[in-house]
Design a binder for these strands. Sequence first.
DNA 1: GTGTCTATCTCGGGC
DNA 2: GCCCGAGGTAGACAC
Lengths: 222, 222
Amino acid sequence: MRLIVARCSVAYTGRLTAHLPEALRLIMLKADGSVLVHADAGGYKPLNWMTPPTAVIEEGETITVRKVKGEDQLEITLHEVLSDVTHTMDFDAARLSKDGVEADLQVALADAPHWCGEGFRLVRREWPTDIGPVDLMCRDEADGWIAVEIKRIGTIEAVEQLSRYLERIRLDPAKADCRGVLAATIVKPQARVLAESRGLTWVEVDLAVLRGEREPALTLFG
Amino acid sequence: MRLIVARCSVAYTGRLTAHLPEALRLIMLKADGSVLVHADAGGYKPLNWMTPPTAVIEEGETITVRKVKGEDQLEITLHEVLSDVTHTMDFDAARLSKDGVEADLQVALADAPHWCGEGFRLVRREWPTDIGPVDLMCRDEADGWIAVEIKRIGTIEAVEQLSRYLERIRLDPAKADCRGVLAATIVKPQARVLAESRGLTWVEVDLAVLRGEREPALTLFG
DNA sequence: GTGTCTATCTCGGGC
DNA sequence: GCCCGAGGTAGACAC
């Protein structure tokens, strides 16, 4: 990884045009061809960047980064270089392991589907439809079908997704009355409104409770 | 900005939990409190990070970053430091200027709504509904209402969004016949099909043409 | 290759 | 403060 601290200006052309006036910034050139220009503020995001695969050409005080496919181009002009160092790193860095993403929520709910609705039992995970798999397919005490869409954050988008699946599932006469449930750690207000207006149910679930690691704060069905 | 190149391991707890085993990486501590851990590959994204406002505590070989509000915590353990340098930068770096984003398109179309449809005149931008604002609300020569959804890239999602708005707008008897138009720089084939199947219109617009900087390539209404 | 969907999305604007 | 939508979203995975 090459780290250049320099007074520089940057111009991007491609999906849009952007210009960055002269200032002191960090330019990061990764071994995989990524180029990132970071300021000392501004948080997570680089001001300008190019993701691999790229072609990097250095000519005098100008670094030109081109996307191998496409029109995107980044032109960095170095006005004053304060530091320019290269560090060799393990190219294939050990991978990041995560717990608590949507997939983990799905596993936990598959094990305890009653949190999606009273008396629910799992028929299968990733129930296939012709436009993609529904997260969970369940049946209730009266043997009615219920499609469950799982999200960490339940947004309008999730309601749309569930609606699309239901539209397909209900084409089968045996499942014409299939209900829909959106299960999420947080269900946003507008998603609640939209879900209810479409006759769909929503429920907030807590991963730790699902796993039996914490007591439920409230009685949800009462 | 402080740049540490070190063999390190990282643990994140908060919205989820994540662990990064020992490897050689770059740790970036920005003046605004941002902390980013980057590998020499992996493109745009840091492996781990914390956005401001944060509290950074350094004790021996451990750097602990806490979100000022909330539970989020990042714990970086330094096993071997190869480099540790600090560069003073202009804190308030000159701002990035962009042109060609959706907002620019909206301004240009509000100024020249006839590109959305013959005889259209603007009633207002950001017309409110209970699930969010419609980009443009127009009326045609016969005083009919038209809701316009503007996107840089017109996808199925944009058609869904426009459909949702129309669903709401048409609840008002005075606007029961409200039409819908998707205006975008590029309208994807699948979005065209879906729009047409729902009785919606789509139109491709060119920002330079809207601004009168370029001649239209084709007659759109003919 | 395109399409779809997740993300510790991040970030900015509005109320 | 929360909520919502845009993003050069990026990145992963299925088809």
